[in-house]
């Protein structure tokens, strides 16, 4: 199983067990280089034997639905609850990627997660990296998960 399949498996598992939402992989270009019109991204760094960044990019309506289901409450705007939920998603995905990449779980360290929200924003990694990007569908819309790893 390659890393792409493992990220799909992890994402589905996190969403079905923690967020209480089923997500499916969709065949669309998930590149995060495209500007996000209105949304939130959760980001966490990987350091140590493998260096990289794991990011989850979520359009605002999808982020509200995910947070609502995750926290079991109504959410109407991108607020601290949404930031916490998206940061926690990045944290869990980062933890899974760490396990996937690491021999004994000790040679890769995770940073703290952070979120960025805004309108018309786009990302760029500052180095030549290997990018694995996937788009997932929910009832409300799609979001993407992107792993950048230093070669």
């Amino acid at each position: 199983m390659d890393i792409k399949d493992k990220i799909v498996e992890s994402t589905k598992e996190i969403f079905s067990t923690m967020v209480m939402m089923d997500v499916t992989v969709v065949d669309q270009d998930p590149t995060a280089r495209q500007a996000i019109r209105d949304g939130i991204s959760g980001i966490i760094g990987l350091a140590g034997t493998r260096k990289g960044v794991l990011a989850i990019h979520i359009p605002a309506p999808v982020a509200l639905a995910i947070t609502g289901s995750f926290l079991g409450m109504e959410v109407e705007e991108i607020n601290e609850d949404v930031e916490d939920a998206v940061g926690e998603l990045a944290n869990m995905l980062g933890g899974n990627v760490k396990t996937i990449l690491s021999e004994n779980g000790r040679d890769i360290e995770l940073s703290l997660p952070t979120t960025i929200s805004g309108t018309n924003y786009d990302f760029q990694t500052a180095k030549d990296v290997e990018v694995t990007a996937l788009a997932f569908a929910t009832d409300t819309g799609t979001f993407s998960v992107e792993l950048q790893l230093e070669r």
């Binding site: 500007a35 996000i36 991204s41 980001i43 760094g45 990987l46 350091a47 140590g48 260096k51 990289g52 960044v53 990011a55 991108i78 601290e80 930031e83 916490d84 940061g87 360290e109 940073s111 703290l112 997660p113 952070t114 979120t115 960025i116 929200s117 805004g118 309108t119 018309n120 924003y121 786009d122 990302f123 760029q124 990694t125 500052a126 180095k127 990296v129 950048q148 230093e150």
Partner: peptide
Amino acid sequence: IDLAIPNSVVGDCLHISGLR
């Protein structure tokens, strides 16, 4: 400490969250 790799973002109304 070990460093990850940098990323950057350009946008409008950027809001960066901390972590509880």
